[in-house]
Write a protein that binds this DNA or RNA. Structure first.
Length: 979
DNA sequence: ATCCTCCCCTAC
DNA sequence: TAAGGTAGGGGAGGAT
């Protein structure tokens, strides 16, 4: 993989950086390279000849890429820093290797840079024909494809000291095991320099996650927990277990040992097993070449270094070892170590480290087999990770009586070995802690049973650092308390620390835990009921942004991924935490590890969401909001994470049925629209899908059939205007509370309207609030007619909420609205109320404009625009004090950008979008920002002038007319001058 | 005294 | 080059 941008830059446009540039390394230059696009934004627009044209520059060009970038910006075109199959229309290059051509779409044109400069000279867009480099690109593709499809097979790369004759059969067999389609893809990406380097690249997140070992570990751990959990519900599986146990019982030949073993089941003796694959990644990668296992092996992304002529100027690789085998460990090599370091250790022993690539497909396969074998004997399993679990063997051993546990375990391990070609180790003991430590003792490829009577002896000699949950930090704390004595084993702790001492050094819980652990005590039982407590995404690699815009774009991707995870887990959360890592003041800008985060200062911030959510936009907006509260320089950002906590399952509970049933989570009293009498409680419940009890203790997760207990309101709580949190209500002094309730029942604005109408108003509010919170997934499943009804109602609602009475004059409820509300038989209504997923969502985040480019149901809608006079509805809504916004944009510039993107991206606007935009302009007028309205309309007209989009122009004119009408109403007949 | 937020630590 | 993710437990210290 060639270094991106290596040959792209001349000195052009960079004189301002002068000596700075000269002083820094190429990697640093790349960052400023990205920055160029920002500078370009401030460039003067000279023409629009490249309108609708976007380019990607590859390789060395004249003028260089930076200059081309600038030129494109000045003349209305778009420059992409990365090649994207979806976006780039012209590939600019003066010398493009064939290897890259195959990456292009058939219609992509490879054009010489001169096309750009000539076009500018003549001030018009010239035909590309004379500048195209590979005119027959489409034709030659078939051929190219054939030539390039077979990618260079992955081979084991020996670092430092190369394996002699590395091209021989030995390697071919390895190729076989590792040249999955995935590795082929990766290889394909690597052989040109278009791959995703940092988080600015649109594909970065995807490629990163695909390759990240840590992501693999955490995601598979969760997957296995879920898998075991699900299997427990399956009746068929219990039958399988019975069958398998039967077979086992019949097939074993008992030895003397078996008859000697007695499990004292009267004393309720327990027997736990911990089982773990040995150096999982390496074992899998070599499962077809076990003979390799004698030499030191590691799994790395880096291929190590091929050339081994001398030891001088060896490149020190910062690629981390995902896993290394025991042969490597004997030299002090450890998982997570930099490859460079590991190579050094090997070199010290005149050994060579064999670096093998990741084989994620194989990991999955082996992991699945490993689990399925064990699960075919028992479901008393707690999944720890893809290659590790705890098993409560008590019941199984009683069943297999008088079989010795270790006899069973050897049979089991044998089966695993045969089936996966990978070794594993197991530990047995009377509790989970000892079982786990026994495994460590057993490794590699062994088993160990700490029998009664040997437990104290065993635990005494265990190292503190080997206890689960004890890391270097805690060890340090312990050692610092008695500098003169070495504290290494459990025995040391037993002798030197009283319970009180431990608690004072480490805190109550940790102190107690360590006190117990060092004595071999552990009262835990298998965690059988898995439900996640948080779902999150963290990226601390490749984070390099120059502008907030770039960051925002990445956050959108993060939010999208997080939403996906929430939905897959069928969870919604009520709390969102953003965590950032910012380069420490003294840390170098260019990190030691390529694209790493270096030394950082970390901080986090959380917000309590208004309701349980898995909504992309809410996540995105709340994240950005929190980020804006945190002080940091964007270019110093090195890591970012979003965590959703306070989870609630969205699937059916014990009382309800799912979507296709009749009752759902949503189908609770609090979501029913009351018929006649309404209390303030009912209104509160719309906003707060919680049980009323204030006494239950957090955490809330135990019972998913009940909702969350209200938490105290804090400064972070966010409520939309017009909504009152019940907790606030409860805490108000009685007097004020009464007043507020009174106000809710009889808002001043409804004076003179009879009481029945109040109730309708409130009912209407409830219903429309519910409607606001529907998401497109639910809407999509409705029949078109219903959908339309709802969409119209949503629009009404939207408009209603945005139009406080003008000039003190109240308008009467429009008929549309009340019929809709009163029509309890209405299909749409019923379906809505039975919808499973819907929870109230803060209104501010339901802006459908977000869907401009991800068109969902809205563009299918055949919605008739609603005449202005029908839109004015009676409302109790409080006046919104916030600055009007659309799709999260408030500043003139942002809205302009969005407007431009909107116009450019479609041949004709869809009605909903137009309405939303119109509403937004009205909002601006209402907040006396006619100037902005004026500017936006002018800008829109200007954009349309350069295009020939008739439908657009017509629609935009209609919009302008409406705005003018509104403007006249407000400003005594004056008209905006848009000429 | 108890809760909450913002960390830190650990594990795979 | 390189792919330093995530879930969960728990402590410090401020807020209530």
């Amino acid at each position: 993989m060639a270094g991106r941008g290596c040959g792209q830059r001349g000195d052009n446009g960079w004189s301002e950086w002068g000596g700075y540039m000269a002083a820094k390394k190429r990697k640093l230059e790349e960052q400023f390279d990205k920055d160029c696009s920002n500078n370009a934004k401030q460039l003067e627009r000279k023409s629009n000849i490249f309108h609708g044209i976007s380019i990607f520059v590859d390789g060395h060009t004249e003028p260089p890429a930076d200059e081309l970038k600038k030129l494109m910006m000045e003349h209305g075109g778009v420059y992409h820093a990365y090649y994207s199959k979806d976006k780039v229309t012209y590939f600019i290059s003066n010398n493009l290797p064939y290897a890259k051509i195959r990456k292009l779409k058939p219609n992509d044109k490879v054009v010489r840079s001169q096309w750009i400069t000539d076009s500018i000279k003549q001030n018009k867009l010239l035909p590309t024909y004379d500048y195209e480099m590979y005119k027959d690109i489409t034709k030659s593709r078939g051929q190219t494809e054939l030539n390039f499809k077979r990618t260079e097979p992955m081979r084991p790369i020996t670092s430092d000291f190369n394996v002699p004759n590395s091209d021989e059969e030995e390697n071919n067999s390895i190729e076989k095991s590792s040249s999955s389609s995935e590795t082929e893809d990766i290889q394909a990406e690597e052989d040109d320099h278009l791959s995703a380097l940092d988080a600015k690249h649109p594909k970065f997140l995807e490629t990163f996650l695909k390759r990240s070992r840590l992501h693999y570990l955490s995601s598979t751990a969760v997957a296995k927990k879920v898998y075991v959990q699900d299997l427990r519900q399956k009746l068929e599986h219990r039958q399988l277990i019975e069958k398998r146990r039967e077979e086992l019982k019949n097939n074993i030949q008992r030895s003397e040992r078996d008859y000697l073993f007695k499990l004292n089941d009267e004393k309720k003796d327990k027997i736990y097993m911990h089982i773990d694959m040995d150096c999982f990644f390496v074992s899998v990668a070599t499962r077809n070449q076990p003979e390799l296992r004698d030499q030191p092996i590691a799994i790395t992304h880096s291929k190590g270094k091929k050339s081994t002529t001398t030891n001088e100027h060896q490149f020190y690789s910062r690629s981390e070892l995902a896993s290394c085998n025991y042969a490597a460990r004997q030299y002090g090599i450890k998982n997570g170590m930099y490859l460079g370091k590991a190579q050094e250790l090997c070199r010290n022993h005149q050994a060579k480290l064999l670096c093998l690539p990741y084989d994620y497909e194989g990991f999955h396969e082996v992991s699945d087999r490993f689990y399925d074998i064990i699960l075919s004997y028992t479901l008393d399993v707690e999944a720890v990770s893809c290659d590790e679990m705890y098993i409560d063997l008590t019941e199984l051993i009683l069943y297999l009586k008088p079989l010795h546990p270790l006899t069973f375990v050897s049979l089991l391990r044998e089966e695993i070995q045969l089936n996966t070609k990978c070794p594993c180790s197991a530990g047995l003991a009377s509790n989970m802690l000892l079982a786990r430590l026994a495994t460590r003792q057993a490794k590699p490829n062994g088993q160990c049973y700490i029998e009664k009577g040997y437990e104290q002896e065993f635990i005494s000699k265990q190292k503190i650092i080997d206890l689960p949950g004890i890391g270097s930090s805690i060890l340090d704390k312990l050692q610092q308390t008695s500098l003169h004595k070495s504290i290494e084993t459990c025995k040391h702790v037993q002798n030197l620390f009283s319970l009180e001492k431990l608690k004072s050094v480490l805190g109550t819980k940790q102190g107690q835990t360590i006190y117990d652990m060092t004595r071999g005590n552990d009262i835990r039982t298998l965690a059988k009921d898995y439900s996640p407590k948080s779902i999150s995404i963290d990226i601390n690699y490749g984070i390099r942004f120059q502008t907030f815009d770039e960051l925002n774009l990445f956050i959108k991707q993060l939010a999208t991924e997080l939403q996906k995870r929430l939905q897959q887990a069928k969870q919604k959360g009520k709390q969102l935490t953003v965590k950032i890592r910012v380069r420490s003041v003294n840390a170098p800008i260019v990190t030691e590890k390529f694209m790493g985060c270096g030394k950082t200062d970390d901080s986090s911030r959380l917000v309590n969401l208004h309701s349980f959510t898995d909504d992309l936009t809410i996540i995105e907006l709340e994240t950005i909001k929190l980020l804006k509260q945190m002080n940091f320089v964007v270019s110093d950002l090195r890591g970012i994470g979003i965590t959703i906590t306070q989870l609630q399952s969205t699937i059916k509970n014990s009382h309800g049925k799912d979507m296709h049933g009749t009752r759902t989570l949503f189908d609770c009293n609090q979501f029913r629209v009351p018929k006649l009498t309404i209390t303030t409680d009912d209104i509160q419940n719309i906003d707060e899908p919680s049980e009323s009890s204030v006494t239950r203790k957090r955490p809330i997760q135990q019972d998913q059939t009940t909702s969350v207990v209200p938490k105290k309101l804090t400064r972070h709580d966010c409520y939309t205007p017009g909504q009152i949190d019940p907790r606030v209500m409860n805490e108000l002094p009685a007097e004020i509370r009464q007043e507020v309730e009174e106000h809710l029942k009889n808002p001043p604005t409804t004076l003179g309207i009879n009481s029945e109408l109040h109730q309708i108003n409130i009912a209407e509010k409830s219903f429309t609030q519910v409607m606001d919170h529907l998401d497109e997934a639910v809407l999509n499943e409705l029949p078109p007619e219903m959908r339309r009804e709802i969409t119209i109602a949503q629009k009404l609602r939207k408009i209603e909420s945005k139009y406080p009475p003008v000039g003190g004059k109240r308008l009467v409820s429009a008929p549309v609205s009340s019929t809709l509300i009163n029509k309890e038989k209405s299909n749409a209504f019923n379906v809505l109320m039975n919808s499973p997923q819907k929870q109230p969502i803060p209104k501010k985040t339901t802006n459908p404009i977000k869907k401009w480019h991800t068109e969902t149901i809205l563009n299918e809608e055949n919605t008739v625009p609603i005449p202005l006079n029908e839109k004015k509805l009676n409302t109790n809504q409080q006046q919104q004090q916030q600055q009007p916004s659309i799709a999260g944009c408030t500043s003139l510039n942002d809205v302009k950008l969005m407007l431009r993107e909107w116009i450019e991206s479609s041949d004709e606007p869809n009605q909903i979008d137009l309405d939303l935009f119109q509403n937004y302009l009205f909002d601006l007028l209402n907040s006396y920002n006619a100037e902005m309205v004026h500017q936006l309309l002018i800008y829109g007209l200007l954009q349309l002038k350069t295009l020939t989009k008739t439908i657009w122009t017509d629609n935009f004119q209609i919009l302008i007319d409406s705005v003018q009408t509104r403007f006249r109403q407000m400003y005594g007949g004056a008209t905006m001058d848009l000429s």
